[in-house]
Simulated scan of single mutants.
Amino acid sequence: MKKKVLVFSFLLSSIIFCAGPKVPYTNEGFYTNEQVQKPVHFVSAETIRESLEGVDPINVSFDIDDTLLHSSGYFRYGQDYFQIPNDKRGELSYLYNQKFWDYLAEMGDEHSIPKESTKEIIKMHLDRGDHIFFITGRTKHSKDKNYTSTKLSKTLKRFFDLPEEIYVEYTGEKPLDGFKYDKSYYIKKHDVSIHYGDSDDDILAAREVGIRGIRIQRAYNSTNPQKMNGGYGEEVLINSAW
């Protein structure tokens, strides 16, 4: 019975971290943990690079959780140690606890695992001279007021061998400026041409702004429920669960 409660709570968590309106899938995609993968538009670092031949340097953006990092351990820890007593949301109450987000920011993801698949993508874009931005649906630290240096941005610099620190945009899952999806405003703000992300909202935000969205597969053991890779006919980075 306890296992069923945990699974249900993670499903609810996916609803909380999905700010934009739901859109039914239009294509036959596949879930990362399926035994048989359906035919979708797979891409690799090499094919993306080839598609950009002759194109001047562009701006690209990346989601963080399950896109750049295996970070589920922190969220599982939050469920055990940052619950709000007597809160009607139960095991999900930690997601509304600013102390959890402060803890996560102070840890700076030093115990998360960088994904090898996006390491290769980032290297390809750096070699091209493209400009990289990071956009997350997380809530920022209570003391952070500006788009500035944080422990997370320093960790990402180290994990992904970046030539300089890249500051992180925190959306708090709140759409701005009339957009339907929380990352749309920031994608537009940085004049991004390609956005990489694991969630449906990542792909739908890219489409809302009219740019190319590429799906990153979630890890098999992610605490986030699996989404249908290629479910909107989008490109999917091959072998990107790792």
Rank of each mutant, 00 (worst) to 15 (best):
K3M: 14
K3A: 15
K4I: 15
S9Y: 11
L11M: 15
L12G: 14
S14Y: 12
I15D: 08
A19R: 11
P21E: 12
V23F: 09
V23W: 06
T26K: 14
N27I: 02
E28P: 02
T32H: 03
N33Q: 08
Q35G: 09
P39Y: 06
P39W: 06
H41V: 07
T47I: 07
E50A: 14
G54Q: 11
G54S: 10
G54I: 10
V60F: 06
I64Q: 03
I64S: 02
T67H: 05
T67L: 06
L68K: 00
L68Q: 01
L69T: 02
S72K: 04
G73K: 11
F75E: 00
Y77P: 00
Q79T: 06
Q79K: 09
D80E: 13
F82Q: 01
Q83R: 11
I84W: 00
I84S: 02
I84G: 00
P85N: 04
D87Y: 01
G90L: 03
Q98V: 12
Q98T: 12
K99G: 06
F100W: 07
W101I: 03
D102G: 08
D102R: 07
E106G: 08
E110T: 13
E110D: 09
H111L: 13
H111Q: 12
I113F: 06
K115I: 05
S117R: 01
T118M: 10
K119M: 10
E120I: 09
I121T: 02
D130S: 13
D130Y: 09
D130F: 10
H131P: 02
I132D: 07
I132Q: 07
I135K: 00
R138S: 10
K140L: 09
K140W: 04
K140N: 13
K143D: 15
K143P: 05
D144A: 12
D144I: 14
N146E: 15
Y147G: 03
Y147V: 04
T148M: 08
K154G: 02
K154Q: 14
L156A: 04
I166D: 00
Y170T: 00
T171Y: 02
T171D: 03
E173Y: 09
K174W: 03
K174D: 05
D177T: 04
F179N: 01
Y181C: 01
D182S: 15
I187P: 00
K189L: 07
H190T: 06
V192Y: 01
H195N: 10
G197Q: 08
S199V: 05
E208V: 05
R212N: 10
G213N: 04
R215P: 03
Y220A: 09
N221A: 12
S222R: 00
Q226S: 11
M228R: 14
N229Y: 11
G231T: 14
E235Y: 11
L237E: 07
I238G: 05
I238Q: 15
I238N: 12
N239Q: 15
